[in-house]
Design a protein around this nucleic acid. Structure first.
Lengths: 339, 339
DNA sequence: TTGTAGGCGTTATCAG
DNA sequence: CTGATAACGCCTACAA
């Protein structure tokens, strides 16, 4: 049987459209790229021809010829249960408004990330968005060398890239912890995440610790659950924390999902929230507003992070530089019944 | 200021590598494509040269020349709170094993889907995976015309594409409903989703209705929440259902997220589950096992759907056809405390 | 095992 | 406003 080779001669090309419309191939190209440069009637004729042939331009050829891909690439560690999905939405939407497509890669480990980055670079995107992962040196090297503008998001401190968009994780954690202290809680525990997103999450931990030490209080306990462990990570962590301190009064969790896991565990134990245990989360996921008695949390503006990242890239692509390369989108503390 | 044109002459190409390694450009190409055809030592020399130049092959050029992209494209309506994310993972993993990359597009409306499909086709992927959305005719037309093999997932019934992978939504809903009837519940309500994924979800509804009518029972009420409405959709729906039937005993929900929303609402009302209201969901998301008293649900094997879809495509790409083009991955009923 | 010629489908450039 | 020509970077086919 004949090998199904689409590449050779089967797909309809600009040539077909040009012939059908009775114009040159260049005119067809212009109709799609610079409609203004083509006469009203010619344009319509070409459009009709393209439509009737179900013509779709070949991006590979276009990119090769123009050296521009009109695409922005993003790489995220995971998409489930995370504020990253909001960031992706922001990116996609804004990128599209600027006429760019989004190339998305998911990589949950440094190794996979390196591979994914190579793949992406191979596609020569006009810009790349890195989202909150630990990058290994090789990947960073390749990225810097590629000449493609890069913006790093979420994890801002110590970034080696020219542009960053984030929100003050440190400050946010500091503020909620102070809020807990104001409420009179003194025996407070912390549940964090371990690698591969440690840089990001350790900022939260530092904020937590700073607020405590400012108040002259010591942490009731620290505990780390693995990234992506979800709700069940919360129950396990609570177990561990209570064994470290049986007079635990409050917990600050690295994520709303973990916090919800803690709250589910409290329900199972029949513990009243916040009387027996106060809980605070991070992210303001939908569950925070729904789970009784409502979860106090930090709203992260993940969507805005994506949108601003896209803006930065587009600005860089068009002008070769940006006016303000480091953006902090801030955060809000949302108080609900859990503290 | 000079426009930053990467395309023209700045990036390192095979030529540079070839020159540095003292070989022809073809040899460099072979080192990457068919390492076996190049002499041991030459290969190493080329690899070193490529490494030291941070050379990354240009996919656009490669695709154009070979007519193959080594990429599989997938399009999903949304990724948050859904079994689709599992399907994506399965797809990505399996595709990678076969040496293919995954191009992912998210499109939450038929219009965006059409646009996304055009974009994807422009990239000439070797295969396309469609995931549980309503497709409009134009999109289907373009897809069929493109000659690219397509597999449709989740939504199987009435598919116009040559390959499908799904699980019996109808049968699954039928079975859980029977389970509820066996438990003695008679006043049962249904919470479904409306467009744009209606075809998919209406199969569930039909299964629900069939089981009821087989038992000679009529539905206590039907209710539809908008896709992606999340937990809050559940509370709202419960509101609506109880107003339709104040003797409601059980609800079957289109999704675990909606079911969890119903359960949260019950908690707020102080209703005991399942004594006052039994709840069943769909998807076996993590929350189902964590929310007290545990949510009875249908496990959908979303990962396997993705994996099998990738397998089908690869088989088709390699052999031009597949032996068994329609796959049903089945489902499991997971019983927990909520019924 | 390595190299040479030609072309993939599109766009930039510049002439008509 | 339209069209001819020469790249773009790589791969297929064939020759050495």
């Amino acid at each position: 049987m004949e090998k199904p080779r689409r590449g050779r001669g089967r797909t309809t090309t600009m040539d077909d459209v040009a012939r059908l419309a009775g114009v040159s191939i260049m005119t067809v190209s212009n109709v799609f790229q610079k409609p203004g440069k083509v006469h009203h009637l010619t344009r319509e004729r070409v459009r009709q021809a393209a439509l009737s042939l179900n013509y779709v331009p070949n991006r590979a050829a276009s990119e090769l010829a123009s050296g521009r891909s009109n695409a922005i690439a993003a790489i995220v560690p995971f998409i489930r249960n995370s504020s990253f999905s909001r960031t992706i939405e922001g990116l996609e939407e804004r990128a599209w408004q600027h006429g760019f497509e989004l190339l998305l890669a998911v990589a949950d480990s440094a190794d996979r990330e390196t591979r994914a980055i190579r793949n992406l670079i191979g596609r020569r995107p006009d810009g790349i968005v890195l989202t909150g992962a630990e990058h290994n040196d090789e990947a960073i090297e390749v990225l810097l060398e590629s000449g493609i503008p890069v913006v790093e998001t979420w994890t801002v401190e110590g970034s080696r890239f020219e542009m960053t968009v984030g929100n003050s994780l440190y400050q946010a954690a500091f503020d909620v912890t102070e809020r807990l202290l104001e409420r009179g809680y003194r025996r407070i525990g912390f549940i964090g995440h371990d690698a591969p997103v440690s840089r990001r999450f350790s900022e939260r931990q530092r904020g937590f610790e700073a607020a405590l030490s400012k108040a002259g209080v010591t942490a009731a306990g620290m505990c780390h659950v693995s990234t992506g462990s979800g709700f069940s990570g919360g129950s396990a962590a609570l177990e561990s924390l209570t064994s470290q301190a049986d007079d635990l009064q409050a917990v600050l969790c690295v994520t709303d999902v973990v916090a919800a896991g803690v709250m589910f565990e409290c329900m199972r134990r029949g513990w009243d929230i916040p009387a027996k245990l106060a809980v605070a989360g991070y992210g303001d996921f939908e569950i925070a507003s729904q789970i009784p008695p409502g979860l106090t949390t930090i709203k992260t503006r993940g969507y805005e992070i994506g949108a601003r990242a896209a803006d930065l890239l587009v600005e860089h692509i068009h002008h070769g530089q940006v006016v303000q390369p480091h953006v902090d989108v801030g955060y809000d503390i949302i108080e609900r019944g859990s503290i």
